[in-house]
Design a protein around this nucleic acid. Sequence first.
DNA 1: CTGTTCCATAACCCCAGGTTAACATCAAGG
DNA 2: CCTTGATGTTAACCTGGGGTTATGGAACAG
Lengths: 304, 304
Amino acid sequence: MEQCPHFGQLLVVVMNARQLEIFRAIMRDGSVTAAANSLAVSQPAVSKVLHHLESQLGYKLFERIGGRLVPTMEAHLLYEDADRVFREIEVLKNLARTIGERKIGLLRIGASPPITYSVLPQALLKFRQAHPTVKVHLHALPKKEITEQLLIGDIDLTVTLSTIQAPTVRSEVLAGVRVMAVMRDTDPLADKAEVTPHDLVGRPLISYGNRADVSPMLDEAFDRFGLVRDVSIEISSSVGAVPLVSGGLGIALVDGLVRWSGFQGLVARPFSPAVMMNVAISTNSARPVSRFFRPFLQCIREFL
Amino acid sequence: MEQCPHFGQLLVVVMNARQLEIFRAIMRDGSVTAAANSLAVSQPAVSKVLHHLESQLGYKLFERIGGRLVPTMEAHLLYEDADRVFREIEVLKNLARTIGERKIGLLRIGASPPITYSVLPQALLKFRQAHPTVKVHLHALPKKEITEQLLIGDIDLTVTLSTIQAPTVRSEVLAGVRVMAVMRDTDPLADKAEVTPHDLVGRPLISYGNRADVSPMLDEAFDRFGLVRDVSIEISSSVGAVPLVSGGLGIALVDGLVRWSGFQGLVARPFSPAVMMNVAISTNSARPVSRFFRPFLQCIREFL
DNA sequence: CTGTTCCATAACCCCAGGTTAACATCAAGG
DNA sequence: CCTTGATGTTAACCTGGGGTTATGGAACAG
């Protein structure tokens, strides 16, 4: 390959940021000398860059009349846009500097919907108080999609209701959460302190599908009573059960993390025997760990 | 002054267009090698520019994990804006090239209101047909403001109803226009072929102030009949007379250029003795003459 | 006529950004 | 286990853009 391919030079429009800046300054200040002053460089420097730009563009930007520069039609056509673009570049430089001064940050969190509806809001509130300038991107998605984005690197960490199994993903269990039975407050079972598989005989069940991590343990709990867990409505995420239970379609066996009593007309009772689900936080070890991972971990621990 | 002032280097954020382009390409393509390919330069070139950018910014944009580049939080924060700004620069380069290929142009015209209401629309229509890619800026302003802008260079040419007297302004008379008497079509004088100073005795006059170029000639015309031109309502621009005449406030003595019969209920009759006003086109000889001056002159001549 | 003001030119310097070539890693596979 | 290929880094080198100072020429005001 050539050292510096010119391609005839007419086709290649260069238009540096510097050339833009100098053109803009000359237009604004009205003369090369004034522009040089306001840019704090020597007058010949400005003059040379201008000539260079003109030769690259292939047309004059200024006529030299009476020893003065007079902008041509082409200059007028360019100026408006050039000015705007230059200002945009300035804004970008500012952003770059601000980032460098650690005055701004970014934490991209992926979370499954139940987490988003329970511990996350409080944890984020706490986190934002400690780090007000850190932007937070929150992606509420199913576990599968979250795992994918974590591997790609679109998110920095995930908080889910089951550990993520993937090559480079490192998970840490933050807390155990007991499975609860969620029902309408008018339900006869609402009077009981706990709900057993026996109590649920003949009642339509709303719960996770067989692919979920807790399903085997729930099945075993029913099995110990000589019963079979017969799920009539399968949900992918526990919050999806709310309208179903409210509508009287059945009783839900779901995580106890979400504040179910916060939904109008619903109550939750512990399921017995106790079946535990895990709140886990995961990062991708193949990616740089966020500066804000530890601080965020601290915040979320306080609420578990 | 120093050769190349660094100022400690931390304060000066450089951020070339080129650095921007390379950063964007690496983010988009996912690796230095791929970016180098898509930019058609060697891979070490990209690597070096990236390192240079990082050292200037003062923070890493990528972590090197497993021999691969992994964007850091800072890179993610920058990318969105960097991408947008880069695209803006591309648009600007395109504009610069388009201008260079003479596919686009600009003609800035200043005209007094009567001109704008008469010959200009047709002339511009013709001009735009011949030069569809040339943008036209039309400033309809009083003579004084127009002259000022012509001298500053904010407009390329002016078309006015009197010649402009200023140091570097070159005017050319395009046509003579007879002064007309404009009245309501119900006016008794509407039956006459011409209107003389005699006819106007006792009628309130609407006309130009004493500072206008034609005023002395109109005064002289009245004087020849032993009369005095007594202007009851003074206007700066002839089109301003329309609502006044319509409202029955008097008869207007104004230029015959505007199609007065085009206004509802108005008619115009030649004023006798004939008093002429001049349609003049002017340019500033201290400024580069527009490429489109001659073509435009051709267009406007066809309608005079 | 003469000083001032503005722009252009010349001669020089430095560094960003390009090249090639050689070298270090890591993933993958026989 | 060692080779192979892909990726990123480093080194040595060259060019050109953009900076400097010094100087010259053109236009205008006094």
